[in-house]
Nucleic acid binder design. Sequence first.
DNA 1: CTGACTTGCGCC
DNA 2: AAAGGGCGCAAGTCAG
Length: 562
Amino acid sequence: MGISRAVVPVGDTGRVERIVLRRRGGDVEVRGPGATVRLPAEHLPAHVAEREHRPEPVRWVWDDTTRWYPALLDRGVRVARCADLRLCHAILRRSPLVDQALLADDETPGWDVLQPVTDTDAALFPLDDPADLLDPVAEHDRQQAALEAAGSRRGLELLLAAESSGALVAAEMTHAGLPWRADVHDRLLAGLLGPRPAAGQRPAVLGRLAGEIRAGLGAPALNPDSPGELLRALQGAGLAVTDTRSWTLEQLDHPALPALLEYRRLARLMTANGWAWLDAWVRDGRFRPSFLPGGVVTGRWASHGGGALSMPVQVRPAAIADDGWRFVVADVAQLEPRVLAGMSGDGAMAEAARGRDLYQGMVAGGVVATRAEAKVGMLGALYGGTRGESGRMMPRLARRYPRAIGLVEEAARAGERGEVVRTLLGRGSPLPAAGWAQRGADLGEPPDDGGDRQERERHRRAWGRFTRNFVVQGTAAEWALCWLADLRNRLWALGEGPPSARPHLVIFLHDEVVVHTPEHLAAEVGEAVREAAVEAGRLLFGGFPLDFPLDVAVVSSWADAS
DNA sequence: CTGACTTGCGCC
DNA sequence: AAAGGGCGCAAGTCAG
């Protein structure tokens, strides 16, 4: 394995040799700047490893990381850089900074619809993979030409490098898996629900609670899992409700409700992260979901399998580091408001962000009286809340933070006009569904009846809330990608030996990372996480003074971090 | 029966 | 009058 201690800079696109890989039946075509060689697929890992060990940096160009990297990782081969043509294509195709004519080709629709493969057990090179019909060399050339001609090119270049690096991290996290103690999880479930029941049976505690609910509501046949039956039973018991959400039920006063709310809480645990979840997703002491970089329109990651991006705090005690290893858990406080301050160049908001608690900083700046007001006001600015408390805060925020609030307001107005907005680095928003945007009264359409007009207006406002949030959520995702990519490089430089012996990422949740590390490196990993955050801020916002304080914890169980 | 939709709730 | 962004997942419900 390579033992280079140098940290690879994120986005060092210019000086790096590029090698394009392409499947050719059972062979792989390896096309470097000087020569093209063809070798059997089973020889590829050794070939890649040999090239990675040489001192001159290389960027592997391939159609889709999910189609190449898992097999390399299985053979113990790690790569420093790649260009993921599928992900880069998706960004470039939607970016308003890009001349789409430069991407146009007969194969463009094929790249548009190319999906990642998530089933790592599938054959390495399935015969009918649509990816094999696409020419990665030509696509890479088109992408480079489009990038060359793009406005704000450096931002896009950074985004493509970070996105590709994210694809590597995603594959590596699935490969490594999150250490998961099924025995601890099972004890946790048994403590709350009773011992594991036979398939299809309610565990003892849920059975008892169901009985209490039926008795309390006078509905002996009620299935509390059925929203319809439950609603009728509640109404039959004299409660004026129109839905059965827990939040609604908490407002009511009825002797059956404590049992119902407790049932809800435990039934949720059982169905989402109960024994069935353990059977389906935990093998050999590891939870291995697949992560999908760019899986959300804003650029956030999605995940598939096991609900990896919404692991309840309740079950995190079962995530336990291996013997002699630790977790380093780090999250950014108030990432989105900080990113908004940076992207808008709002000095006053950046000043409030100086320090651990941005909301407290807003109080100190005299813009609001309490932290709670600061928080609800800021969430309203980011999500488009105009009602109640957050609506009342907006004028004050707009006065004190004109650039920040101006930026999100303008994004909302642009969305309402049906326009594309973009993140700081250049990821574009999708266009709204055809309909309201094209048929506005300002385009000369005869006025419809009031119902349609109101409907269109609702859609217009909703789309404005989406674009308002898009620019901030999307730029926050870019900060997080840069953080992740730089951290990945630092972690590699920190360790020694094969990938499995080095500190490695196991979880990434939008603004939080978990690193699994040999215990003796935990302190250094903590430093690396902080340094990577500083670097991410520099990459996105240059010299603009903006803090991204982290909470960092070195723990044995994920649950002990929060 | 399957598949699409709804409801509710976990995470950020 | 109403007006909160993005996801994934499981169970219930309903249409075909």
